[in-house]
């Protein structure tokens, strides 16, 4: 792991093998929570700032951080497929997980729409259902009883083909379906305060606002925390033979 994030070698397009650095090498989160408890800002917890937010925003964000909505729209079979699918596309391979599946279900339960539908696509909830059916069908074609039964490598291969629009479907425009489910999933994931912690986003900023807009450390508000560029000592110390 790089000793600082000034270099860009940890990014997929800049690394030799096209892969990001393993997130397990990042520091463990020390303040608050992040998904999978790794992040670049181990001492930053956006929820610790909640007293500085207006009451309507505070209530919404605190309940979003607390809530695991009940599943009422998707069937058990769809859940069995979509849950591991979301884990793969969002790289949520360990607890704590942001409950994206439940959050998507809740959005559909509330009948929330995005204001447009492609003429060759069904309504969004139906798109999700057909995606689940397509993933299970592809898994069967590859010799497994279901998508959930595939091993990690095989799941990645199916999702990779999906992302490239290379899966076949009789009732879906596959590229558009990828866009619909991914944007739906990302809209939930990156609305969650744990994700704000992981990426160092300041979160709600009303009524306090920001006073420091510079580049580098001068651009950090007093309540923001620096990036941790050191490796996790739990991994780093034994590997370097220091103990």
């Amino acid at each position: 792991m790089a000793r600082s994030f000034r270099e860009a070698g940890h990014l997929p397009k800049q690394s030799a093998d096209g892969e990001p650095r393993p997130p397990e090498e990042l520091p463990r989160q020390r303040a608050g929570l992040t998904p999978q408890m790794h992040g670049r800002y181990p001492d930053y917890d956006v929820l610790a700032q909640a007293d500085h937010w207006d009451p309507v925003t505070r209530e919404l964000l605190e309940s979003r951080a607390r809530e695991v909505p009940p599943v009422t729209v998707f069937t058990a079979a769809e859940e069995a497929c979509l849950r591991p699918f979301l884990d793969v596309v969002l790289a949520q391979d360990a607890e704590p997980r942001i409950p994206v599946f439940e959050m998507v279900d809740k959005k559909f339960a509330q009948g929330k729409l995005d204001g447009y539908r492609y003429e060759d696509m069904p309504e969004d909830p139906e798109t999700w259902r057909r995606v689940a059916a397509m993933l299970d069908r592809v898994a069967r074609e590859r010799g497994a009883p279901s998508f959930a039964a595939l091993d990690d490598e095989a799941r990645d291969a199916v999702v990779d083909a999906f992302s490239e629009g290379e899966l076949e479907s009789e009732d879906l425009n596959v590229s558009r379906a990828w866009s619909v489910v991914m944007r739906g999933a990302l809209s939930e994931f990156y609305s969650h305060p744990w994700a704000f912690n992981e990426i160092g986003f300041g979160g709600p900023a009303y009524p306090r606002g920001y006073m420091r807009m510079h580049q580098g450390p001068q651009g950090r508000e007093p309540w923001e925390r620096p990036e941790a560029f050191e490796e996790d000592p739990v991994i780093d110390v034994p590997r370097r033979g220091l103990k």
Binding site: P12, P20, P23, V89, L90, A91, F189
Partner: peptide
């Protein structure tokens, strides 16, 4: 920002890494 990273063709661990690099 996540939609931007997705549009460039990233998902899974690659997407999470670009997201962590947000700042």
């Amino acid at each position: 920002w996540a939609e931007h990273v997705l549009a460039d063709g990233h998902w899974g661990r690659g997407l999470r890494e670009y997201m962590r690099d947000y700042n």
